[in-house]
Design a protein around this nucleic acid. Structure first.
Lengths: 338, 338
DNA sequence: GCTATTTTACTCATCATGAGTATATATGGC
DNA sequence: GCCATATATACTCATGATGAGTAAAATAGC
């Protein structure tokens, strides 16, 4: 008889290079055991996140355990680290359906400064928007939103059992995917993810239903047609972790200069802007972004120049005193003690 | 041999009535076993928070388990519920020091609408600022800050082992308790709590050190003089949970109208203002607060009046469509499904 | 009718923000 | 050397949100 609960730590490790936000993925994946000949095998995906069971004897804090796990298991030296959320919904780990213990996982957001390290063995740095393509509006509104997502969400709203449910669904859709361009809120990443999951637009949704059916002795045959398969699926509920991490990061960006945990110690303002644009999935007004950083005291000129720009050389800056302040201020998580 | 880890759920249940923010406390407390005659007994405090071990078989989600725990154990019907943080630092539960398992607890913030229910048996609704008195600036800057906290923090900074540490401590103090009035940030509740704990200004700090010493066979005699004992102590690390909850609530207030989860369905604008003031611990400009609610579409007039004001009667309002939107929007936690 | 008290309605200055124009300084082709 | 091109940097302007204040309206108590 297994333990009643399993207690894992999972890290969403993000970095930025090549103009994109990347997430460190590992080969994961799990196959349901002993299928009967009449049962279909649901898809399984190997893009997982660094995860390990928490060993209470080895570590004083969860954050310490996350850092140790990332380093010793995957060779990742984490910078900024912050607790995200504790996931414990029944069935989030399909092994529960086949007799496994309840799987509880504390998710952590971790940042790795670019150019700080090579790619360790077994880690694949994937563009975050490969998994969450609807979140990237830097080159305009993604076309799938108009011709795939919108009609599918409309059908989902129309398919509600009761009038009241339809109204609530409509409100959620309007808030997460507003029709008018102006009101798009980059932060509502998780709401959008969960909406798409519930509406059956993500491969994980169909997979999870099939697994539940198989565990109950059913055939696991595909349910009605899947209207779309948005983005690259991930193992288990890893994509939900990723959405949670991106939401937290975008939200934090609004009131704390977390970008400086990602860019190298000396940078051009344009570089910072590109990173922020990648994080928020939007484009920014160059002159105003510059004003924001300079007038806010977030950066200080170094006097050195970067001549690799192609036009007029850009001055190199470093974090200002304000930014340092923020860095060293908070206790919960954040930076290593040093 | 006990389990390697214990997995608890703890609820910080807040409500507002009598012009104050209240937290639901329960009688808790634990005494170290079998002290030798030479050992001192550290203080123990009975103000605890509703807590219960998570039963994975009984509940589909953690939130569901928290609601059930609050209701069946304490008769509290929770409204808005949101996960706060998972606490797992070694030694956070003193029983670990005496052979108990590692205690992991997921903290939840829960709101109860005022006037919605009486006080259940065994629950004491305490003014939050009885526990965190330095957070209430509605009647000006608390005097203890000037004549007790500031000098004690100065001594703590001066007592650092190295110059670098002193600088970091000074920066943390400046950020959490800024000298200039203008830069006081109501949201940094947890930073202030942890600073005061580390500086030894909270009874819990001395108690925890004494317990650790007793567990190691020491006498548990009080360490050097405690410069102050700020606020009413709580059992275990409950006050840390409370600080985390208040910080989250104050932060949320900046971008989501959570007040409407606390006030009754019909209210005067003055009433909402008083609640917000109690939550943030500050005073607000009446006319501007009014403008904010009205122009933002957060409230709608009902046409009815409240004549209990003492002056000109105030109109009664209800939540506007905007507020409702917010209410029904988010998935993670928030309101009961209904 | 007068005063005290509270609600409600406006006004005004200031500052942050979004958007645009203009200038400076590099590279590369000819 | 001179040009087009590309980028960085500097400055202006309109708009809206915000902080702070004045004033009028509507009640109760005397």
């Amino acid at each position: 008889m297994p333990d009643a609960t399993r207690f894992d730590l999972t890290a969403v490790v993000l970095s930025t290079f090549g103009g994109e936000v990347r997430v460190a993925t590992t080969a994961a994946g799990w196959e349901p055991p002993e299928l009967a000949p009449t049962q279909h095998r649901p898809p399984s995906h190997r893009d997982g996140l660094p995860t390990r069971a928490f060993d209470p004897d080895a570590h004083r804090t969860l954050q310490e355990a996350v850092r140790a796990m990332a380093d010793s298991d995957h060779g990742l030296r984490l910078g900024y680290v912050e607790q995200l959320y504790t996931f414990a919904d029944r069935g989030r780990d399909p092994r529960e359906l086949f007799g496994g213990p309840r799987a509880v996982a504390v998710g952590y957001l971790a940042l790795v400064r670019e150019a700080g390290q090579g790619t360790p063995d077994g880690i694949v740095w994937r563009d975050v928007y490969e998994h969450l393509p609807w979140e990237d509006r830097r080159t305009g509104v993604p076309v799938i939103l108009g011709n795939v997502v919108a009609p599918a969400l409309d059908r989902w709203v129309a398919g509600a059992d009761s009038e009241g449910l339809a109204v609530r669904r409509r409100e959620r859709v309007e808030l997460a995917f507003p029709g008018a361009e102006g009101s798009w809120d980059p932060v509502r990443v998780l709401e959008r993810y969960e909406l798409l999951y519930e509406a059956g637009l993500l491969v994980e949704a169909g997979r999870d239903r099939a697994l539940a059916e198989i565990a109950g002795g059913g055939s696991g045959a595909p349910f009605g047609p899947m209207p779309a398969a948005l983005g690259r699926p991930m193992a288990g509920d890893a994509r939900r972790f990723l959405a949670t991490a991106l939401e937290r990061l975008r939200g934090k960006l609004r009131y704390r200069p977390v970008v400086f945990e990602l860019v190298p110690p000396a940078f051009t303002l344009n570089h910072v802007q590109k990173v922020v644009e990648a994080l928020t999935g939007t484009r920014l007004h160059k002159q105003n972004f510059r004003r924001l950083l300079l007038s806010g005291g977030l950066v200080e000129p170094t006097g050195r120049m970067d001549t690799q720009t192609g036009g007029r050389p850009a001055e190199l800056f470093r974090f200002g005193r304000e930014a340092i302040h923020e860095r060293t201020s908070s206790r919960r998580g954040e930076i290593p003690e040093s």
